[in-house]
């Protein structure tokens, strides 16, 4: 195929801004981050190479260990609960109910709120002296206790509750689209076969909805990696360091604690973890594509 010089030029000039952004912002900034993590940088970046010293410090840092621990708990619970609840909501809406549009909008509404707003709302709701516990006690349930957010060992689960509340609506929308794509005649065939409804969902419908589950899981997972604002708005990492998360660790050390070297080491560790998960998946995907 031969293109005239003119159209080739315009194609290149159209792609150039995106290419520059790609090179400078993503690849450039990432490489620079990795390099700084290998230096002794504190408040300002320097080029004093110290090998993996920052990583050694990082792995000895209690706050980092707690952050990693928390993100694992949050990641597993948030993704699985959001998928489960989102799917169940979609199934409920798919039963040809009345006022479907309204209910769908209500379920999807939390997703239109930022994590900061979500965090604040849930902070109030979970605050023992203001929220649910207070209401229950004022109704006469004197012994009612719901103080997860002020207890170090349960604070992270409060983030899960808020995160799931926010994301379930999105999962529902994706799942509902998947459910609506199921051929009506499959349902009829299942009825003639005498299959109970739950059995149809478990054995036939869910296996058909692999693409919907994958889409939802990928979207939720990116939300896990970049989890920052919810922790800041809801608990500010507290009580103590009980609900710290890796992204917050990086931000705090970059801008408040003036320890750029440690922050970039943490950021690089996050990057490596994500790549370690995504790369095999992408490899598998392309292999699968070739086989077809």
């Amino acid at each position: 195929m031969r293109l005239s010089l003119n159209s080739r030029l315009s194609a290149i000039s159209a792609l150039l801004p995106a290419l520059l952004v790609m090179l400078v912002v993503y690849i450039g900034a990432t490489s620079w981050t990795v390099w700084i993590s290998l230096t002794s940088s504190r408040m300002l970046p320097n080029n004093n190479f110290v090998g993996l010293r920052q990583y050694q410090i990082l792995l000895g840092n209690d706050r980092w260990i707690t952050s990693v621990h928390n993100i694992v708990i949050y990641g597993v619970l948030f993704v699985s609960l959001a998928l489960l609840i989102g799917f169940l909501l979609a199934v409920a809406i798919d039963q040809r109910i009345r006022a479907e549009d309204t209910i769908r909008s209500i379920y999807l509404y939390p997703y239109s709120m930022s994590f900061v707003v979500t965090g604040l709302v849930w902070q109030w709701l979970l605050n023992p002296t203001l929220g649910i516990q207070h209401v229950l006690r004022s109704w006469g349930f004197e012994g009612a206790t719901f103080d997860w957010i002020v207890r170090p060992e349960t604070a992270i689960y409060c983030l899960v509750v808020a995160g799931v509340w926010q994301a379930s609506g999105l999962v529902m929308a994706i799942m509902l689209a998947g459910l609506r794509g199921v051929d009506e005649e499959i349902w009829k065939a299942a009825r003639v076969d005498g299959l109970p409804k739950w059995r149809v969902y478990v054995s036939i419908i869910i296996p058909m909805m692999g693409a919907s589950f994958a889409t939802a899981a990928v979207l939720l997972s990116t939300g896990v990696v970049r989890l920052y604002d919810l922790s800041v708005a809801m608990t500010n990492g507290g009580p103590g360091i009980a609900s710290e998360v890796p992204a917050k660790f990086v931000m705090d050390h970059l801008f408040e604690r003036a320890n750029i070297g440690l922050a970039t080491a943490a950021a690089t560790t996050m990057l490596i973890t994500v790549v370690a998960v995504v790369a095999p998946y992408l490899y598998w995907r392309t292999r699968k594509g070739e086989v077809r």
Binding site: D183, E185, I186, K188, A189, P207
Partner: peptide, 25 residues
């Protein structure tokens, strides 16, 4: 028993399981 225009087979099951699933349940 019924046969449909769009076949309405259970897509993620083998032919054997498609035929036997109803009886199994």
């Amino acid at each position: 028993a019924m046969v449909f225009q769009s076949y309405a087979l259970y897509p993620r099951m083998s032919v054997r399981r498609n035929m036997s699933f109803g009886l199994k349940v």
